[in-house]
Design a protein around this nucleic acid. Structure first.
Lengths: 166, 166
DNA sequence: TATTGTTATACTCTATAACTATA
DNA sequence: TATAGTTATAGAGTATAACAATA
């Protein structure tokens, strides 16, 4: 039985990393999708829910549910567009921005613990290799594929050149 | 907004890799957990279902369900232990072994497509870095954490030294 | 008639708990 | 009484479909 190749190690470690991160953000009463949404809203404030859903590659209904929970807690707000009252622009509240900074701290601690086996130079080396793969695979920067449905993934493969699949 | 660090890239690529692999093994009418079970049974034939569940870090009921499906298709078989008739030793059938070889081919194609951005030397470099992290994090070789529940993960963290968590 | 957002529903996966048989 | 395996049940997470408001 051959020892696992890099593709399996990626899946294995990726799931492990995601789980550990989930445990850490749970201390902030957040799930990873919620944390990701906060991050995305901060990255480009004012997007409509549909636009955000498209960026994340998720059905709009999921954004509604996520925003519902975060809005109740005063972390994000929906601002109705006066010109087109169907649109709800998403913005972080001050509390949301503060929590996002907390998420950043949690993420740094997570990374440090996860990569304890590697010195800083090696981590940078790893980051370089991974980002090359991310780019070639046409993954959206900063978006976890957990948002993306199988069907949506295939659809976007048809629209764009995409990575070579043999 | 800082570009993602290696921990996020790992989670992102890991989820992507798992999804792509799922698409590929679906062509063999298998899910990744089923493929993983076949692989585990091949690695150590004759384990009881409980022993296999412990190795995978999953509740035994899940193994029952997985084996049910695979046994119906004639890929694995339960052999009753005559000395202790409660025990069901798991073995691959000839068809199961053949399908496992197919899985190996699918996995190789998957890896090649996933890591198209990297030359062979770089892939080996990546494998080296990842396996160091896998070892330090005390992950079981060849077992995807998807089998492992959150509660079980924490329990095993308490029993073993485990990686340093700050 | 088309689009944004929402609500309602159903489905998949998995864990937990109850149960059977063997010891 | 304890253990291996099984069956039954329930919960979380997510997608799909139907609907309301606005354009």
């Amino acid at each position: 039985m051959a020892s696992p190749g890099p593709a399996f190690l990626l899946a294995q470690l990726g799931a492990h990393a995601a789980r550990r991160f989930a445990e850490r953000v749970a201390e902030l009463d957040l799930t990873p999708p919620q944390a990701g949404l906060l991050r995305s809203v901060a990255r480009e404030p004012g997007l409509s829910q549909q636009a955000l859903a498209a960026h994340l590659g998720t059905p709009p209904t999921r954004v509604v549910a996520l925003v519902d929970g975060l809005e109740e807690r005063g972390l994000v707000e929906r601002r109705r567009n006066l010109a087109d009252r169907r649109l709800h622009a998403l913005h972080l509240t001050e509390a949301g921005a503060a929590l996002l900074r907390e998420i950043g701290r949690v993420g740094a601690a997570h990374e440090d613990a996860l990569l304890a086996a590697l010195a800083l130079l090696r981590r940078e080396q790893l980051r370089g290799l991974l980002s090359r793969v991310v780019e070639e695979q046409r993954l959206t920067e900063g978006v976890h594929p957990g948002y993306r449905t199988l069907r949506d993934t295939r659809a976007s493969d048809r629209e764009t050149p995409g990575p070579v699949v043999r």
